[in-house]
Design a protein around this nucleic acid. Structure first.
Length: 757
DNA sequence: AATCGGAAGGTTTTT
DNA sequence: CCTTCCGATT
């Protein structure tokens, strides 16, 4: 029956089959952590445990999805589907949809992402007539976030003398007031931010023992991945859930704790001992992923940290190559060296693109590398945070969806009430907000009954408001009966949003229309997938509400698409956690960048940076190449950099002699590059919906490839002109052209149909 | 009320 | 350098 257990080593086997009582698994990098978790779930099921009684919590959607897939592979679809597997945030969001009414939330509450919540905080700060410099929204928001993830309520925040004196000495005594207003505004909008999903779940379980009991009964077995990254709230919720049966298994690696900055607390691992004195601990120390060289280098680096649980990660794998080391003169050069190196290795060893991964500390570093890859025609894909969903046009359309789903969502309402322009201006909105505040009702309520709340606007405006609310209400009606795609499409068209961008005939607007179409395609896919899963049954259609629930907790790094394989992968080190790749490039190893300048003052923070480096190294299976640039374009000017201290922490025998860039003309090329770039941005086209995709496709249209800067061209609408510069490639190729009639224009070449004269 | 341009601020890292 | 926001202008 349990044939699959044969695939485990001794330690893994013990960790999997020890299913009675609290269990902690300390798993070194590459030692089969996910494997233990998935096999443990399979094992529980094989022992007759009801899948409905199992809860598995992860940090990222990606990890959750992978776990699901692997469990399905082991035991088949049927049982696996009934196990609750998901991120902390998504599982708790689900619970709050069901039980939120205990706390006064409707089941269709909106989830605000960090941008939404910063916007709200900013509004509050200006409402309070405070200086936004002194009270920068991001500072205030991180303060509030820290409080919430430590379960400190608004009242507790205001009454805690330590917190208050800290805020006062930081000259920000009003944060308590902002926090409190922020919470009531969220409540009024029937909205929760990310931290509320945890905070409110905790409150729910504390105040309503009956609800807690229900979920304790349901989740008899709890598994937690990446336990070292849990914050206080997550820790306590899990503890509450497991209090009854104590059938809890946590898996983690203190050496890979990299989320301290958002409240993760390594000591949760250490507390485990005192919370569950009769716990069993297993250490997984054999690494199956990397070469000896890589494992050794990683071990060496981590010894520079003082705080850690002792363990010895070792491997039976080959020694492998030494670690590569590039010393580039500039960031441009760094990109070039990496692109060249990938190209060479690819050709020599006949490797596909997807065998290569480039890791960096900050998202901003991707640009110079991207350019180099594009020049070499190497396709790549960036797994970046949220860029797709933070685009204006996407946010706008999503705001319509949000408002339709939750009429009280004030942030969404304010975003779109005049987009596209419908004559409801700033002054009017101002008046509505004041009326709402005075009467302590929601903005939506005021818009629907302007007279009742004594809104002092002329009859023309009243008519416009009326038209707006009629429109939204009609969308709500559509949403009740149609599936997600039909509703979304209807809204995109009837709201006039699509038309607005279509009429504006600029390359920028064209790309916005494309992005909207991508979003709609994504929703279509989402809808069809559900129908497909239910074997063509059209009646079980997915609603827009369900789509939005998915989106709120999704980042585009989470998505994966079959058509999008075989590309070099690029991502931040944080995003790479839990993944493995054959050939890894870790770039920008410079002081003040990696380790980050914000983290070199305290030991704790520096050690977190070092763990980050440890994570980066241990992603690699076969080779690692490190690089640094001696000069780097930052904030628009050259900075001379120093090699990262982390480079010295790897013993000389394990690392190659630095390979230096020889191109002396690089400074020049750097200058010319910046000049031609002035004032332009390339619009990265995203392909299928939840996917961030910046592919460098070979140019298909031979006409286009003949266009060069300096060429005289003719355009159907603008007439004669001269090409000033060209950038991008494939479908993204665009040019700046000076036309005698209208001056400079940015054109997407694929649409512009330029003729060479 | 809408549009355009300039100024200012922003880079950690993510759910 | 790039993006966003604000204010001045029409």
């Amino acid at each position: 029956m349990s044939d699959f257990l044969k695939q485990l080593n001794k330690d893994q086997l013990r960790a999997v089959t020890q299913i009675n009582g609290p269990t902690m698994v300390i798993a070194g990098a590459g030692s089969g952590k996910t494997r233990v978790l998935t096999y443990r779930i399979a094992y529980l099921l094989s022992k007759g445990i009801d899948p409905f009684n199992i809860l598995a919590l992860t940090f990222t959607n990606k990890a959750a999805r992978e776990m699901k897939e692997r469990v399905i592979n082991l035991i088949g679809d049927g049982d696996a589907r009934n196990v609750w597997m998901g991120t902390f945030h998504s599982i708790f969001a689900k619970i709050l949809r069901i039980e939120g009414h205990y706390l006064g939330y409707p089941s269709n509450y909106t989830i605000y992402d960090s941008n939404d919540s910063k916007r709200l905080i900013k509004n509050i700060i200006s409402d309070m007539k405070l200086d936004t410099k002194q009270y920068s929204p991001s500072y205030v928001s991180s303060r509030i976030s820290m409080a919430k993830s430590s379960l400190i309520s608004t009242d507790e925040y205001a009454n805690d003398s330590d917190i208050q004196s800290a805020d006062e000495s930081a000259r920000k005594p009003y944060i308590k007031e902002i926090y409190s207003r922020y919470q009531s505004r969220l409540k009024r909008a029937d909205a929760m931010d990310f931290d509320d999903l945890l905070f409110n779940t905790y409150i729910l379980f504390s105040r309503f023992p009956k609800v807690l009991y229900k979920y304790q009964q349901k989740f008899k077995y709890t598994l937690v991945d990446e336990y070292q990254d849990t914050n206080h709230a997550q820790y306590l919720i899990v503890k509450k859930l497991a209090a009854n049966t104590e059938q809890i298994c946590v898996v983690g690696d203190d050496a890979q704790s990299i989320y301290g900055f958002r409240g993760a607390n390594i000591s949760n691992i250490l507390n485990f001992k005192s919370d569950y004195p009769d716990f069993k601990m297993f250490k997984l120390e054999q690494n199956y992923r990397s070469t000896k060289t890589i494992v050794e280098a990683a071990n060496q680096v981590i010894t520079f940290n003082k705080e850690q649980i002792k363990k010895t990660v070792w491997t039976d794998n080959n020694t492998g190559n030494k670690i590569g080391y590039f010393k580039a003169q500039s960031d441009t050069e760094e990109g070039k060296m990496i692109a060249d190196s990938i190209f060479e290795k690819k050709m020599n060893e006949q490797l596909s693109n997807d065998k290569f991964t480039i890791l960096y500390r900050t998202n901003a570093q991707s640009r110079s590398i991207e350019e180099a890859l594009r020049k070499k025609n190497i396709p790549y894909r960036i797994y970046s945070g949220q860029s797709f969903y933070t685009r204006k046009e996407i946010k706008d359309l999503l705001a319509y969806f949000r408002l339709v789903i939750n009429n009280n969502d004030e942030d969404a309402l304010q975003r779109i009430i005049n987009t596209p322009a419908r004559g409801i201006g700033k002054t009017t909105i101002e008046k509505i907000i004041v009326a709402a505040d005075i009467n302590n009702v929601n903005i939506w309520e005021v818009i629907n009954n302007p007279a009742q709340y004594d809104l002092k606007v002329n009859s023309g405006i009243v008519l416009k408001l009326n038209n707006f609310s009629t429109m939204i209400n009609s969308f709500c009606v559509v949403n009740k009966s149609k599936d997600a795609y039909e509703t979304a499409n209807h809204i995109a068209v009837s709201s006039g949003l699509l038309k607005m961008f279509r009429e504006e005939d600029t390359p920028e607007a064209i790309s916005r229309v494309e992005n909207i179409e991508e979003l709609l395609n994504g929703i279509k896919e989402f809808t069809e997938k559900a129908i497909e899963k239910s074997e063509g049954d059209m009646s079980v259609h997915k609603t827009l509400d369900e789509f939005m629930e998915d989106v709120a907790l999704l980042t585009d790094a989470d998505s994966d698409d079959d058509e999008d394989r075989d590309k070099v992968m690029m991502m931040t080190i944080h995003a790479s956690k839990g993944l493995e790749f054959p050939h890894v490039y870790i770039v920008g190893l410079e002081e003040n960048l990696f380790p980050s300048i914000q983290s070199i003052t305290t030991r704790t923070e520096l050690e977190e940076e070092r763990r980050l480096f440890y994570v980066a190294l241990t992603r690699a299976m076969e080779t690692v190449t490190l690089s640094h640039a001696e000069t780097r374009y930052r904030w628009g000017n050259f900075t001379i950099t120093e090699p990262s201290r982390f480079l010295d922490e790897i013993e000389e025998g394990l690392i190659d002699k630095p390979k230096e860039s020889l191109n002396l003309s690089n400074r020049e090329s750097n200058f010319s590059k910046t000049q031609s770039d002035t004032g332009q941005h390339s619009f990265k086209k995203r392909n299928l919906m939840p996917l961030s995709n910046s592919g460098a496709e070979p140019t298909e249209d031979s006409d286009i490839s003949e266009l060069k800067s300096g060429a005289d061209v003719e355009h159907a609408k603008f007439g004669r002109g001269k090409i000033i510069s060209i950038e991008g490639s494939g479908p993204n190729m665009k040019a700046t052209v000076f036309f005698n009639s209208v001056g400079n224009k940015n054109l997407l070449l694929r649409f512009a149909k330029l003729k060479i004269v």
